[in-house]
Design a protein around this nucleic acid. Structure first.
Lengths: 252, 252
DNA sequence: CGCGGTTTTGACCGGCTTCAAAGGGAGTGG
DNA sequence: CCACTCCCTTTGAAGCCGGTCAAAACCGCG
């Protein structure tokens, strides 16, 4: 069912662009996604506690929905998707996380969704007890959780109110750093093209966007026909104009 | 546009059922929603810090998307919906929260969505600084955030993969305590009927479920025609059999 | 009773899904 | 080197679910 994406963890790390705060713009101009300033207590914890970093292949399951939530994972590199299944097999990818994000936190003691790597990934495995007991670490955990919530809010809008084309355009914009979010830097002078690499199969994209693979494929073909994007090797998508794609997201 | 729901804060409080842990079942059988054990640090904070409880009418805006996130609100009673708007006016209600939940937390310094009361509500207003600075309070905050995340995951599945009927059935089940969630107690002996009071207009329900008012209305009418529910006074819905409604949610 | 609002119902339409088949790319083996 | 296979992806045709537009019904209220 899933394409075996050939990629190692190092390549994945290079792909995930750093999104630092934008200084000196007066109004806060950081992106909504992933703005985690260095947290000393967290850094100290990682240096001292018994944690291990595991390297996982693409399409490796980190944990299953409803299993006891023994571990918390910090994504060090790569991308991980979180999904839930309905009884009849329908799948919804509820979130996609990358470096710096924490997953596996749970209120109930059971994982509320499954986690599967999209790319080769390095994940740090933490003991649930260690993280939950320490007051000092909660501030860092707190930031991670708030980031996830804002991401989930955006996703709810996408799933509930956007057309197929708007969903696909929004999806593509996810992979363009510093664009289409709060603090968008606008098109660079003398060109606004960008190539993004989709490390997901059409099935995974469809399950993330709440569509079918056929619809995802059709929308991409249509965008290609209209000259908005060009597709190289199925997983490399070149946008002639990022702004033009952004205008299709339904946000503006 | 919105029906002025006649309800005071006290009635709202009575409506929100407590969902305690289920002891003695071996496997943890608590619900996924709202399982916040008493947090002494939090309780002490509320007793000491300069916080105030405000009583708000139904359909009162607590804060707007993109406004500076100065305050954090704890819902003391009533229900509050969080929503986002697209530029052309499409609205998606991303979450509905009730007593014990915290809203208004933000990574970016700006609220990422708007908050509006659905019912008359009591809300405790907290200073962002006070909450964020204290390490001790973060444990409580984190529990609230994790609960929200699990709720948002469920909502993503609903919006992305469920049919109109499954969405409406899932929505109705939200208001039946201890049923349709982990730890469902099953039908009571000698009858499984339940009346729920919807304190939302059709428009609000539709915006929550990612549908139109017409579709919500049609689905409810259809359920009524088939004898699954009966509707009294537009906002009171009686389910002849909770189990039967639950089977329409798509979860089983 | 009439008025303004929401909700329901009807008719029609269109976007997305479904089902089916063809196309394409990577790996394998003769 | 090329044929073959296995997936995944793309494309086509048809159907349906939910959206859109419009009108009627309902409801509380002055």
């Amino acid at each position: 069912m899933f394409l075996d994406v050939k990629m190692n963890a190092e390549a994945a790390r290079a792909e995930v662009a750093d999104v630092p705060r934008q200084p000196g713009t007066g109004r806060y101009a950081g992106t909504r996604r992933r703005t985690l300033p260095a947290d000393t207590a967290w850094a100290e914890f990682l240096a001292s506690a018994r944690t291990r970093v595991e390297t996982r292949d693409a399409h490796d399951i980190l944990f299953h929905e409803d299993d006891p939530a023994e571990h918390i994972y910090e994504v060090v590199s790569g991308q991980v998707m979180l999904y839930r299944l309905l009884a009849d097999g329908r799948r919804q990818v509820v979130d996609i996380v990358s470096a710096g994000d924490l997953i596996g936190l749970s209120m109930t003691g059971l994982y509320d969704c499954s986690a599967e790597t999209l790319t080769g990934s390095d994940v740090r495995v933490l003991e649930r007890r260690d993280v939950e007991r320490s007051r000092d670490l909660q501030t860092h955990v707190n930031r991670c959780l708030m980031t996830r919530i804002e991401s989930l809010h955006s996703h709810a809008v996408l799933l509930g109110r956007k057309s197929a084309q708007e969903r696909v355009a929004s999806f593509l914009m996810r992979f363009v750093p510093k664009r289409g979010v709060v603090g968008c830097v606008g098109p660079a002078v003398g060109g606004d093209e960008q190539t993004v690499v989709l490390r997901m199969t059409r099935q995974e994209i469809a399950d993330y966007l709440g569509l079918t693979i056929e619809t995802v494929s059709r929308v991409l073909s249509d965008m290609k026909r209209r000259g908005v994007i060009s597709i190289e090797k199925n997983d490399r998508i070149r946008m002639a104009s990022v702004c033009r794609v952004c205008k299709l997201t339904g946000i503006h």
